[in-house]
Design a protein around this nucleic acid. Structure first.
Lengths: 336, 336
DNA sequence: CTGAAAGCGCTTACAG
DNA sequence: CTGAAAGCGCTTACAG
């Protein structure tokens, strides 16, 4: 394998000069630099990250952590992040927390990740106090996309506003009996997305003069199956809504599916709106509050790269990305 | 940051002993090993991969390469692969080739990846001769999932059989005028998936006594949009099929969408079958030839780990994963 | 079973 | 502008 000494020998200079020339460091004559670059290219030489990382402490890699391996949202964030990380020459190390406890410990093992990656991009993960402390102890730049975590920079959407946008759309269509599907009763870590979206929902309802009916709130995690279950739950209660605001598009898809199975027409009998603008949402004609998740990934990665470059650990910042209502055919004016 | 010398000092042994004890190497007394392990745990010590990698040449990471950053198929393979890679302690380095030429060169830059990763998992990528040569020159274990590449081990499904299974299902439902949507006219690299699925289609058609009509074959890449375009193309021709075999579920979704927009009922007027069993296929009632993509990822990763462990570069092997017809509601008996 | 020491391939003060 | 040399934190023959 070609090493720096091969390049140095061939170029008739020292390895120090090769190192400087190739990394664009000052103090190398233009001629020498050109020569070294040419020879490196000819030999196909690339510095070994392991070897370069030893003296510098830098790995040239960024770890991207998500709670589960898949899901539309996480892959979209990853795609955006990877795009800008690659542009800046960073490799992407991917971790997920699906084999829960083991991985979680592994990821928050200060030492491990610190030795593997220069920075950390964490997706939408409820973090407990210890974990936040571990993250700080890592002394590496960290960005989270999703929730606001005290002391850590993040890219997020305004979830209360998301709830307002969705509910306002339904209210403007004349709906007054509006259900909310979202929030996980098992979630003891206080993942705030669902509660905040619900807050916006409650707020708009009240300002429309509607007193929220607790029977119209049903729990649902962020899956299609949860949407199906939420519809069943709703149908079993003694008040039927004319519209439902689902916490995500996947939940909305489940609700639409279950409603149709149940002989309920969407949107004639029931309007359904989701959140995200999932890749396939348009296929369902799903109205939604769209967020540009790839862009969130890009912004987070860009901010991370900035901090990696500058070396200064700036004040935690919060970037809020705008969301936008997209009305399609799953919502319609209430029938009178 | 805690290093091996800290552990050694605290345990009152040499760094060599710490190294051996922690890696489970023989030649360490049980007492010493226990002591060292305890102290390492207490200090939260983890060996630096960079430092460990220098003398050994091993990085502890596997690179997973896909042609594009997303898509249901690729994320499913990644999920499966990551699962077993993580179990065996390998980190996952993720690359995609979306910023085409640059990245492609980067990935197939023998030296770079060789210095970054111990092994390579390549997804469904048409590889040209030079690239295959580069892969071999890397002298690292390589697995591909998807196509068969000469001289490289792979995990794949039998795409001709996939074509047979789908077409046989339609033939058994009485269909005789069956279209095929798939194959990319721009694909000059000869990516064989579509052609092979088409081969199975032609074969079953002929053995049912039907002479394939070239007007019933329309091109389509692996996207929903391509499915919509394929339907339009089909509808514009002067022979209308009673069924269509789409090269993937996403293409099938597009066809169903476009057909319904066009006032054509599925399955009453048109039966549609896809391939994959995409996560959301059941929502569309889509009949499909299912492949267990996560399992393909797992198998590929397991084979890779085997070769990484054994060190011997075994003969290229090909693992074929079975596919299975799932009949749902997008296909029905032909109307008489 | 254990340790001293060389070496992996780079980077970075320090001299010149 | 350039080079000699120390050092990054490990692993691995080699001795004992």
């Amino acid at each position: 394998m070609t090493g720096i000494v091969d390049v140095a020998a061939r170029a008739g200079v020292s390895v120090a000069t090769v190192s400087r020339a190739l990394r664009g460091l000052p103090g190398v004559s233009a001629t020498t630099r050109q020569l070294v670059q040419d020879i490196a290219a000819e030999l196909g030489y690339v510095a070994s990250p392991s070897a370069a990382g030893l003296p510098t402490g830098r790995t040239g890699a960024v770890a991207v952590v998500s709670p589960v391996a898949r899901g539309w949202y996480f892959t979209a964030v990853l795609e955006g992040a990877q795009e800008v990380l690659a542009q800046h020459g960073y490799d992407v190390l991917r971790y997920d927390l699906s084999e829960v406890e083991t991985n979680r410990r592994k990821v928050f093992d200060t030492q491990l990740l610190r030795k593997r990656a220069d920075g950390l991009l964490i997706m939408s993960l409820p973090l407990d106090t210890d974990e936040v402390a571990a993250l700080h102890a890592m002394h590496r730049p960290v960005m989270v996309v999703g929730p606001i975590v005290p002391g850590i920079s993040s890219v997020r959407v305004d979830d209360v506003e998301v709830g307002r946008q969705a509910t306002r759309h339904l209210v403007e269509l004349g709906h007054r009996v509006i259900a909310f599907a979202g929030g996980d009763p098992d979630d003891h870590l206080g993942f705030p997305v669902s509660p905040e979206r619900r807050l916006g929902y409650l707020e708009v309802l009240r300002s429309a003069g509607v007193e929220p009916d607790p029977r119209l709130s049903v729990p649902a995690k962020f899956t299609v199956e949860a949407g199906i279950a939420a519809y069943a739950e709703l149908a079993a209660r003694d008040v039927m809504p004319t519209a439902v605001f689902a916490v995500s598009d996947e939940v909305a898809m489940g609700i639409i599916y279950a409603a149709r199975q149940d002989g309920v027409r969407v949107p004639e009998d029931l309007s359904v709106i989701g959140v995200d603008d999932h890749d396939l949402s348009w296929l369902f004609g799903l109205s939604t509050v769209a967020q540009d998740v790839r862009e969130e990934g890009r912004l987070a990665a860009a901010a991370l790269v900035d901090r990696l470059r500058s070396g200064v650990d700036t004040e935690p910042s919060v970037i809020t990305v705008a969301t936008k209502l997209i009305a399609r055919t799953s919502t319609a004016a209430v029938r009178t």
